[in-house]
Simulated assay, not measured.
Amino acid sequence: MTLPVFVINLDRRPDRWAAMLAQLDRLGIRAARIAAVDARLLAAQEERERETNNDDLSLGEVACVWSHRKALRAFLDTGERAALILEDDVELAPDTPSLLESVDWWPPDAGVIRVETGNISPAKWCLLWPASAETPSGRRVHRFERWTPGSAAYLVNREAAAFALPHFDNPAMPMDTLLFDHRRSRLARELRALQIVPGAARQTEDGDTSDLAGWRPRGPRHTKWGKHNKKSLLYRARLIALRCTGKVKKQRQGVYYRPAP
């Protein structure tokens, strides 16, 4: 069994699709293209706000969530047990094909496994639970407690995809926050995603200006993250307690990328 692969790509970026095809061909991976939702083609800002009832997100962030929704729907239509979802600006490690051979190496309760490295600055860090499995090539699989941004490469099974889809219809937060931020996202707390360490994928330098989530409408952008202050304090207290008891370990510089395990 080889898991299907879906690559999210904007129609106006055939260059990125060509680059992804070349990379996947070198790795011997076949993939299906998912036409990304283009923020520039969405309805006017006022119409989008009426539909989502949320002014926290840019049009690009909404388009990114809806693009991943299209990818998950395409995966569920295949009838396969799991799939790899990619954005078109990701660099894959040479052992990526081994991740697609089966799901036998997955921990029993795994629904989402992030393949990419967290896209964070070296000054930040993440908290990882002890490894619960290994990939076929020897990378460790951890549950993470403190999230790191990024949703450009992840494995997902049918149950998790079906459970997550309703949360994508009316997004209240960006895609990576929705899937991986335990503090802000109820979906993330339910899914309890796992992380491959070291990461087997990373967004390229061009990904710093992602076409999926980076485009923003002109004018002021409002935010409501302040309402999470109380939750933030409780979350920080939880992290401190977990570290003091030794249940999770601090890993500086996030989850680093390495071409080989």
Rank of each mutant, 00 (worst) to 15 (best):
A19S: 15
G79S: 11
R146W: 08
P259A: 01
A110P: 09
L42R: 04
R189Y: 00
L233Y: 10
A43C: 07
V37A: 01
G79L: 02
P136D: 09
E190L: 14
A32L: 11
A193C: 12
R30I: 03
D77H: 10
G60T: 03
Y256H: 11
D169A: 15
L57H: 05
L155V: 12
G214Y: 05
T117N: 08
R69P: 01
T117E: 07
V5L: 11
T245E: 03
I8V: 15
A161H: 04
G226D: 12
E49N: 12
D56L: 07
I29R: 04
T209A: 13
S67V: 05
R139W: 05
P261C: 10
R186S: 11
G219L: 13
Y154N: 03
R146D: 00
I8H: 03
R202P: 06
V7I: 14
D109H: 12
E46Y: 01
A22V: 08
P122M: 06
D15H: 12
R140E: 14
L10C: 13
C126K: 00
P261G: 05
V65D: 06
L72K: 00
S137D: 05
L99G: 00
M1Y: 05
C64I: 00
R216E: 13
K224C: 07
E134Q: 15
Q45I: 07
A162Y: 01
A63K: 05
P130H: 07
W106A: 03
W105C: 07
A93N: 05
D109T: 14
P94N: 00
S210E: 05
P108N: 07
Q45F: 10
D95F: 08
A19C: 10
P107C: 03
T245M: 13
R16W: 01
D25E: 15
R146Q: 13
D38K: 05
N229C: 02
L59Q: 10
P136T: 03
V255N: 08
Q203I: 02
P94Q: 00
E116D: 07
Y257L: 05
N119C: 04
E87M: 02
R218Y: 06
Q203G: 15
K227D: 13
S232L: 13
G226C: 01
R192T: 09
Q23V: 02
H182N: 00
D11C: 06
T177Q: 12
R236M: 12
L27R: 01
